[in-house]
Amino acid sequence: MDRYHDAPRNRFILLGASNLTLSLRLAIDLMQQRFGGPSEIFTALGHGRAYGVCSQMLLRGLPGIADCGLWRQLDLAEKYPTYALLTDIGNDILYGLPPEQVLRALEWCIGQLQKHATHFVVTNLPMTSIESLSERRYIFFRNIFYPSCRLSRNETISRARVVHHGLMGMAMQRRFKLHEQKPDWLGLDGIHVNYWQRKAFYQDLLDQFHVPGDKPEAVEGKRKFLLTWQQRPEFAYKTVFGRTVYCQQPSGQLADGSQVCKY
């Protein structure tokens, strides 16, 4: 890592699964346009990632977000203005975790965000698009993304509704911002944001942060350079072919000096 870059101005905590993984640099770029940079960035994400249970995608395994090393590292980190996103909820259901356990894992993560983040936003399950899935489409995408899952469409929707309503009650009780996603942004599978709508999706998500003050100046050409990878982040812990692989954090760096931890 380059020690001569400016010190971080803030910290971002980004929690999610496939959507966030596919749009990580975009999400960081939009957050820095709003909150400034360079930033210290903590991520827990990955295709198929879950909050309360270990996930397996092809030959790669990852711990549940609630059990990953991000939280221990945050306890040791210096204090910065911190902005967080918790998104891509729902994979736990297709891995067979009961709604009550899903909500317990989410509530634990939200409690940690309330401890560490100045401002954060949570996205709820996209129930409108999930409920619009036909039986044929549901089975098709379930077999592709969750080949070990045997939950029926009706059972999956029933469990998703419990988590959706549980998060609404949790948001009222714990007083955090819960954002409902627009179904028009989501593709045929009901859960992944359309490629050409990713920027609008994350801009709308960041509009939920009610933070006073002027946005930092952003020059388009300069930002494109600053948001290129000098070093791509690697997972702090994963399993591959059943073999444990560790990587010291932070493991990634952007051209503006922002350092990225990936758990």
Rank of each mutant, 00 (worst) to 15 (best):
F241R: 05
F201M: 08
L86R: 05
F35N: 08
N154P: 00
T82D: 13
F225T: 00
S132C: 11
G190M: 12
C247S: 12
R136A: 14
H116M: 13
V102R: 04
A7I: 04
G96D: 05
A105C: 13
G213I: 11
I93T: 11
Q248I: 09
S129I: 13
K238Q: 15
E180Q: 10
R136Q: 14
R104C: 12
A171C: 02
V53G: 02
D88V: 03
G169W: 00
E78D: 15
L85C: 12
R161T: 05
W196A: 13
L62D: 00
P99W: 03
N194L: 15
L227F: 14
S152G: 15
R49Q: 06
Q33H: 07
A17P: 03
R60D: 01
L205E: 10
R34V: 04
P147I: 11
E217P: 04
G36L: 01
F140S: 11
R159D: 09
E217V: 01
P99E: 05
I13M: 10
T43L: 08
G69Q: 06
I89M: 06
Q32C: 09
T123I: 13
G221F: 01
D214N: 13
V121M: 11
T82Y: 12
A117F: 11
Y138S: 02
L59I: 02
N10G: 15
S132E: 15
L178V: 07
R174Y: 03
G46T: 02
K115T: 14
G90Q: 07
P147L: 12
R72Y: 03
L227E: 02
A27L: 07
F176E: 07
D214Y: 07
L227P: 00
D184W: 07
L76P: 03
Q112M: 14
L94I: 00
L70M: 15
I157D: 04
Y263M: 01
K177D: 09
R72C: 10
S152C: 09
A77R: 12
F141I: 04
N124H: 13
S152T: 15
S129C: 13
G16L: 08
F176I: 05
H47P: 01
M31T: 06
T87H: 04
I28Q: 02
M127G: 11
F141K: 08
Q56C: 04
G90N: 07
W196H: 15
E100S: 13
R150K: 10
D67M: 06
L113P: 01
D88P: 04
P183W: 06
R25K: 09
A117Q: 10
P147Q: 12
P63A: 11
P8Y: 12
K115M: 10
G221L: 03
D2V: 07
R25Y: 00
I41H: 06
A236Q: 14
R223N: 00
L70K: 06
T239V: 12
L59H: 02
S39K: 03
R137C: 06
A171P: 01
L45R: 07
L97E: 05
N143W: 02
V53R: 14
R60H: 02
D2R: 15
V211G: 06
L14W: 11
